[in-house]
């Protein structure tokens, strides 16, 4: 009986050895993983655009309005109404995320030669255009801006208002 078992074992081993034939080609493969994560989009709603207060500007004057609506003028012009209205944007639920606020696509016009936006998330004192902020369940973003008056006359009617984009992205 043992001899028979031994014979069967040897036969099986011989079969395995015979089965170990050379492959036709040398195939090499590697598994590629395509990682992708999912999150909610940032719900963003613009409630109002920026409205400056009254001022009388001279060419090359620089007019600034903070996110709090306070206006400043550098140059020879004069501020007539020191408060304006910052743009108000509400953000949806962005908890557990760091948010980057990126102004861009500045489009001068109507005698405005340069623009620079700055913003604050209500309840914080940080300039969100410079520092990432933690998202909350709901946030209100106030956006102000600096602008430089050009050499020519300000066009009041029929001209496209200067504009820019404010992007909010997950860090």
């Amino acid at each position: 009986m043992q001899a028979l078992q031994k014979l069967m074992t040897l036969t099986a081993v011989a079969g395995l050895v015979l089965f170990a034939c050379a492959s036709d080609t040398s195939a090499n493969m590697t598994l590629v993983q395509a990682n992708i994560a999912f999150d909610q989009s940032i719900d963003l709603h613009k409630n109002s655009d920026i409205t400056f207060g009254g001022f009388q500007a001279r060419p090359n004057d620089k007019v600034s309005m903070g996110a709090d609506g306070n206006m400043k003028l550098s140059g020879s012009g004069e501020i007539l109404k020191p408060f304006g209205s910052p743009s108000v944007i509400t953000l949806g639920d962005a908890r557990n995320h760091m948010l980057n606020f990126i102004p861009g696509n500045y489009t001068p016009g109507s005698g405005i030669t340069s623009l620079k936006a700055h913003c604050t998330v209500k309840g914080t004192n940080q300039d969100c255009a410079s520092v990432p902020l933690f998202g909350t369940k709901q946030s209100t973003v106030l956006v102000g801006m600096d602008m430089t008056i050009g050499d020519g006359m300000l066009s009041l009617d029929g001209a496209a208002a200067p504009s820019f984009d404010m992007s909010v992205i997950y860090q």
Partner: peptide
């Protein structure tokens, strides 16, 4: 939200 996936394929 806050999930991920890792589909795969093989390069031969």
């Amino acid at each position: 939200i806050n999930t991920s996936a890792a589909p795969t394929f093989t390069i031969n």
